[in-house]
Design a protein around this nucleic acid. Sequence first.
RNA 1: GGAGGGGUACCGAAGUGGCCAAACGGGGCGGACUGUAAAUCCGUUGGCGAUGCCUACGGGGGUUCAAAUCCCUCCCCCUCCA
Length: 401
Amino acid sequence: MDAIERLVEEKLGRGVQDLVPREELVAKLRRSKETGKPLRVKLGIDPSAPHLTFGHSVPLRKMRQFQDLGHTGVLVVGDFTRRIGDPSGRASTRALMSEAEIERNMATYKDQAFKILDPVRTEVVYNSTWLGAMTFADVIQLTAKYTVARMLERDDFAKRYAENRSISVLEFLYPLAQAYDSVAIRADVELGGADQLFNLLVGRDIQREYGQEPQVALTVPLLVGLDGERAMSQSTGNYVGIGESPKEMYGKLLSIPDTLIESYFDVLTDVDVESLKKEIHDSPRDAKRRLARTLVTKFHSAAEASAAEAEFDRIHVLHERPADVPQKTLDRSKLKGDGAIWVIDLLLASGLVKSRGEAKRVIEQGGVRVNEERIESSDVDVPFHPPVLVQVGKRAFVELV
RNA sequence: GGAGGGGUACCGAAGUGGCCAAACGGGGCGGACUGUAAAUCCGUUGGCGAUGCCUACGGGGGUUCAAAUCCCUCCCCCUCCA
């Protein structure tokens, strides 16, 4: 085994779901080393989601590994494909987005992605550049290069076809468009989540049809979300965002089921998992805290990680008020003659409840505290001597002044 | 072109004249428990200072003392045959 084979074995091939074909990656790396020409490593990104989650960070980290070896990361923004909808999800086509919206999303996206990627070795391109320029004849030519039977190999299509559920022709075009992106940017490697394997493979065939050397398809496992069940995604809400505050990030990570600790270390950090197995097993609490600290440190700083940890303990372990509570100014017209205020109005003013009904409900359920005193009845007035600390549930605080 | 099925709350789904602010599940929220914002269990889940009123079962119109439920009409979605 030579150095390059070892590299693929020990680094690039680690934490990977599929790598096909492995030998081609070795060959490409070898040639790149000889010629000094960096490989072009593609990752398609969806411009509809401005916020990246830890799930996105998995392929991004893989791209960074390539960049650290001198290769070029190419982020392909799917601003054009966005308009035809992604068949991998539900069958519904998503709404169109304006260019301005896409631009705005991409700005925050890049901001977050560059916390992981090396900006110097990253190209950001928009697939409308080439897809938008194609004529109908070009499209027909593209469709001629793939067959219906091969499309139906895709599990999702096969199932729906067998069940007599609809598959629009448009959905067949999606993998082709994505494949053509690979042609347009001359991709050597395409990265993606495990659910993208089919699309990446179509890319190989289409590149070959256009006289290019096929890309290597490298997929990473889909990160399981905070609920420990479904893949992490923004639509299910079981995610941690790369751009989230230290406090949120820390808290969310501590809420993952213990069974996820090991895999999170594995795909999200550079920590050697082997050395942690004992701790994970013997003291999941400490391992999880270490995980949260490691990740907050990575995306923020060590100091902020410590602060987030201290804050978490303060609220959840010691049940004390958080260090800084958002303040709101009370509209004085709600005050009664004696300077007191009806609790319901106080809660409403805090913005912690949406309606009087909800306010009454949380009071009945014993979830409301004013100045750390539990409120037992919704039929009381409290004297208003600002600041007044209002708490709903365990972790929602507002100070009224 | 023909035949049929369907649009119900945040989502899925039941309900086919009054007992329906609408079963049940998911989600959300609160509580208990906990190392945890996990798991589990319990409760709760349209609005209104409220034994009543308002809004709500795709849109509009109608029948009725009473409509998510019946009639008319419009819009939208899906399936099968061609």
